[in-house]
Amino acid sequence: MLKIENLTANVGDKQILKGISLSVNPGEVHAIMGPNGSGKSTLAQVIAGHPGYEVTGGTVTYEGQDLLDMDAEVRAQQGIFLAFQYPVEIPGVSNAYFLRAAYNEIRKARGEEEVDPMEFLDVMTERLKIVEMGDDMLQRSVNFGFSGGEKKRNEIFQMAVLEPKLAILDETDSGLDIDALRIVAEGVNKLKRPDRSTIVVTHYQRLLNYIVPDFVHVLAQGRIVRSGGKDLALELEERGYDWLLETAGASA
């Protein structure tokens, strides 16, 4: 589904990603862990097409196509979804309007009919249950005045409505209490399908108790320094990141 090869990326003159290679197959859950500043959020945003990063080398292939050649909106229309670490507030645009616009853009790209507001209301009402939110949020402005937990749940709600093929959760767990974490994780699990893949970017192992990964990759200083199964996450929880950083430092 997604094949990243030797990807390098900069912010300004600073190189953040220094040669990332990663393959994600349909149905798989990959966790990307690492200390602050390791480049894990950058990787998530580069896949989604954030204009603030400059890709300087390597390739990213998504369903056989050159992902780096697509605008961010085209990536979304092709089934890529990024749950933001810091969801953006957009006062003046209701969640309902925003989501319907997104939903219809994605349907149009697939050559499907647009849905009318009433039809779409049914879709939204059903998906709200997944994140245990009331329908009053539909008329509120996008993320505006939302608590941290509400913002993260709104990300998962959007994901539930838009049904991406590849979902990337960028530190969706950070700042959540255990109840909110459980709701978010269960939401993600309910949306799992054999043809959908998930990349979970996280600093903590905690989330992975709920969203069980097939693979765990440790990112440090812009490189993947270790990959393994779900047990690697437990080991990291036990030992921290330092032992891997030393290894990375020694090999650099």
Binding site: E73, R75, P87, F98, L99, A102
Partner: peptide, 8 residues
């Protein structure tokens, strides 16, 4: 970017 990341 947020709007674009949702396909808009």
């Amino acid at each position: 970017f947020y709007l674009k990341s949702r396909g808009i």
